[in-house]
């Protein structure tokens, strides 16, 4: 038993030395360098934080529209939709943060991103729709440009999967503003852009993509 104890303590000591050596070796290793994709990913993350704050500013108007606003009757439904889309931008930000970290980068902080309303920006429901539409269009283009700028296929995939979500937000707002469409009698938030991503992504709070939405079946009419 004594020999056994000796052998255990020797093993423990050897293990300690080995792990200490490893720790010293690790401490000496330089931190991995951020990949080139981190810069465009951080640009997209800044835009997501800006969008989240823009929707917050818009929601304040939708929840308490100016007296006499001609679209007051729509305000409540639009606020529900804006809340949903704001949360989708939050999902995008979460996924981008994860991607930046896995590319050895440091994500920009939400607190450092400031949203400044356009000038002039008279408070009205239609101006909230216009602001959101403009931002979604610019975001979609930025994502497409980032796909071209980035090198890793995984990062391109994430950008493309978010881009198609922004284009959905854009075209709904654009169609409403051009009066091609108007809200129906039954609006379920879950239907208003049903997923945060086009194709399911690896990380995030709501990573599901459109492939999780069931196909329509065919009926007699």
């Amino acid at each position: 038993m004594k020999n056994e104890q000796n052998s255990i303590s020797r093993r423990a000591a050897l293990g300690f030395v080995a792990s200490s050596t490893l720790a010293v070796a690790c401490a000496d290793d330089p931190a991995p360098t951020a990949t080139a994709d981190v810069t465009p990913l951080n640009g997209l993350l800044s835009a997501e934080y800006d969008a989240i704050k823009a929707y917050e500013a818009g929601l304040a108007i939708l929840r308490s529209p100016p007296m006499g606003d001609p679209f007051t009757v729509l305000a409540r439904d639009l606020a529900r939709i804006a809340t949903r889309w704001q949360s989708q931008h939050r999902d995008h930000a979460t996924a981008l943060e994860a991607a930046i970290r896995s590319n050895y980068g440091t994500p920009v902080r939400e607190i450092d991103v400031m949203f400044t309303p356009p000038n002039p920006f008279p408070a009205s429901i239609v101006n909230v729709l216009k602001l959101a539409c403009n931002k979604e269009r610019i975001a979609a283009i930025a994502y497409n440009d980032a796909v071209k700028a980035m090198r890793a296929n995984g990062n391109r995939f994430l950008a493309g999967s978010i881009e198609g979500d922004e284009t959905q937000h854009f075209i709904i707002l654009h169609s409403l503003l051009r009066q091609l469409a108007e809200p129906g009698a039954t609006i379920l938030e879950a239907d208003m852009v049903p997923t945060s991503f086009v194709s399911t992504v690896a990380a995030g709070t709501n990573p599901a993509g459109l492939q999780t939405i069931l196909d329509f079946g065919f009926g007699a009419s």
């Binding site: 075209i171 709904i172 009066q179 469409a181 809200p183 129906g184 329509f216």
Partner: peptide, 14 residues
């Protein structure tokens, strides 16, 4: 999304 919303009744033709 446009066709989906139309089928779901979430939007109607303007």
């Amino acid at each position: 999304t446009v066709i989906y919303l139309l089928l779901k009744g979430a939007v109607v033709p303007g």
